[in-house]
Design a protein around this nucleic acid. Structure first.
Lengths: 203, 203
DNA sequence: AATAGTACTGGGTATTTATACAGTATATTA
DNA sequence: TAATATACTGTATAAATACCCAGTACTATT
């Protein structure tokens, strides 16, 4: 999508607002009145420019035949699902995205950034099962007891977080068959990708 | 909202469809073409009737000035959350609805009808924890091993379903602290509300 | 200084569109 | 039987609207 002029942006916003208010797109005259233009042709030229740049579609010969190409309301809700890749951090690069899930951004109370598909049963006593989707919020604001998505060297894991001392961090599984991971920050590098704010099980 | 004629309903649907397709409301001529009328006045009279009955609003003197009063698109995605009421079956009666959740109907692969908020830990080894939301599909198509929402007399419970014989059904918890419930259909009435097709944990 | 892009004014026209009027036909209801 | 609501066709007109053309002014770039 190409760049846009300040004036063109105003016109685009005006159209969006008009549709929200009335339910149908504005005429050239409507735009002029809204933005203070004195000739409908001013609107016309801007509309043409916006169409050329791909922001709107204009049905020729049709009154109010303006369609927003990227209506704000339509893209508000697509979150990527990322597989727990064996090596390397989970990234939002498209090759790691299984698919996307439509849901409101505030689905889990607080905002979140992506879904992570869980491998293994190390958190089963926390009700996190294999293939569940964890809603991950990218943040460094971690408190003891939070379920974090941590990367140690090249391995990504989901565990309870507990800071024992400024240098010692415990990553605790919720499954008696697994052992705590003790990490000495002076020896091992650890990167917190974020924390879990919700969960979805698809079946 | 008053009653509506078959023809008027057709016109209403036509408007809805047109808006979905093009992004803006139809003209009288558009409606005529769509429904096979030969005079724009046919559309006009129906529009007037629909306006009088409160289904649409018409901006007088404005081209395509038709607004749907109850746009279908706004309510397409709200599923109710039902509390696990201690006594009585979970119903969709509004007094039992905590709130609603916006998500696509096909969120969990198959369709579903409502969310049930889980009480207790009887299914914790299946990863179902207290206060989780179970996506319930109302169906009688239950197979052994499905997680069902069952009502026994006046108590509602979530358990694994296993049919032992034509008359004997077991409802099995996923928690060693709980015991199987054996039900003899000749003695006890049981009603299957539906089965779980997914799960959401809000935090 | 020359060039090009953007932002606007103003005039004019053909088409689209809403809307009114006149009339027919068919049900339903009183 | 009469009255009334619904469902159309057909014609006409004024207003709304899209859209083309010619021209001015400003700014940034070369």
């Amino acid at each position: 999508m190409k760049e846009i002029t300040i004036q063109q942006n105003k016109v685009l916003d005006c159209i969006q607002e008009y549709i929200n208010k009335t339910g149908f797109p504005p005429t050239r005259a409507n735009i002029c009145k809204e933005l203070g233009f004195k000739s409908p042709n001013s609107a016309e030229t801007h509309l043409r420019a916006l169409e050329k740049k791909g922001f709107i579609r204009i049905e020729s010969g049709t009154s109010r035949g303006i369609t927003l190409v990227n209506p704000i309301g339509k893209e508000e809700s697509g979150f990527p699902i990322i597989g727990l890749v064996a090596a390397g951090s989970p990234t939002l690069a498209s090759e790691n995205i299984e698919k996307t899930v439509n849901c409101p951004p505030s689905f889990f109370g607080s905002s979140f950034d992506y879904f992570l598909r869980v491998k293994g049963l190390s958190m089963k006593d926390a009700g996190i099962m294999e293939d569940d989707l964890i809603a991950v919020k990218k943040t460094q604001d971690i408190r003891n007891g939070d379920i974090v998505i941590a990367r140690i060297e090249d391995e990504v894991t989901v565990k309870y977080f507990e800071r024992k001392s400024p240098e010692i961090v415990h990553l605790k599984p919720a499954n008696e068959d697994f052992n705590d991971i003790e990490i000495d920050l002076r020896e091992t590098e650890i990167h917190i990708e974020g924390k879990s704010v919700g969960l979805i099980r698809e079946n």
